[in-house]
Design a binder for these strands. Structure first.
Lengths: 156, 156
DNA sequence: TTGACGCCCATGGATGCCCATGTTATCCCA
DNA sequence: TGGGATAACATGGGCATCCATGGGCGTCAA
């Protein structure tokens, strides 16, 4: 149990709080993650959430770039400036800040989507649409999958 | 928690004061920074703020240019010429001086942007525009950065 | 003297912490 | 095997505290 798996829809309460699915909390604990870091996904209206590795991923990327170039500076602004720490309360809930809401369109419900080493936050409707489109696309691209045992299906 | 991370928008009051985000004050304290130094960013309409390492960073950055060229001189004057120590008041606020305002366009609101070892001051509108453009640029330039699955277009 | 700046106090809103409730999944025992 | 007891979890609300913000006043310097 060390991978973020499956998806869950949770409610946002009047204070803007949402419970992190308990299985995700397990994974967070098992991985020894102390601080949750959040970033806007580049290509999707979703927020990526994970531990420090999430940031290290970009740092590695940046090592290949001249540290004194504009590109490096820009990557730094993106990686560090366009993210946020997510503080959890004593019950394991996180706050849906404007930072999250404006990028995802989340209002009163959130879909948590496990993506192996990290998980994502989506507005449920958008995620449904995305998942549908994704399935189509994969069906076209990977026809060999069709015969197999419903490999593209995602648990509710 | 020893890195300047995330971004915050704060108001400038009638006296020109702005609160430094408390998380940044934490970082300043944790790093043992006693004096904050501010200088013009070389590539953006922003002010870079940090401890003594900030100056070293600039110097290294400028070494990419021939240190005996006119350009080097000009960059030095540009960055250091109006640089200033930022005094904080007893509440942890700094003053938006004309030096800061003229370079950034800041009037009544400021965006604090964490960039790991230092942070920046931006006019919120300009930062939003910059961030948007940057996302576009990175999305094209680093297509492999994101993508748990195949890239699929999603309505924004 | 006048304005800039440092220091103090006031306040409202946001945030974190604690406890309460209902629902669901799990387990145990008859 | 069915049903009740139990534990885990999502959710809600109250309250204390921190923090961003605003205003007053004294001091120092031009």
């Amino acid at each position: 149990m060390d991978r973020f798996l499956s998806s869950y829809v949770h409610n946002v309460d009047a204070k803007g709080r949402v419970s992190i699915p308990s299985s995700f909390r397990q994974v967070i604990h098992n991985r020894g993650i102390r601080e949750l870091f959040a970033m806007r996904s580049l290509s999707q209206p979703a927020i990526d959430v994970g531990g420090p590795e999430l940031m290290e991923h970009y740092e590695k990327r940046m090592e290949a770039v001249d540290p004194f170039s504009d590109l490096y500076q820009e990557l730094a602004i993106y990686a560090y400036g366009d993210g946020a720490y997510l503080k959890t309360d004593s019950e394991g809930r996180i706050l849906m800040t404007d930072f999250i809401r404006s990028h995802t369109g989340i209002t009163d419900r959130v879909t948590f989507v496990g993506v192996k080493n990290s998980f994502q936050l989506w507005a449920p409707e958008r995620f449904e649409a995305f998942r549908g489109a994704l399935r189509e696309k994969l069906r076209e691209r990977l026809p060999s999958l069709r015969g197999a045992a419903a490999p593209v299906e995602t648990p509710e």
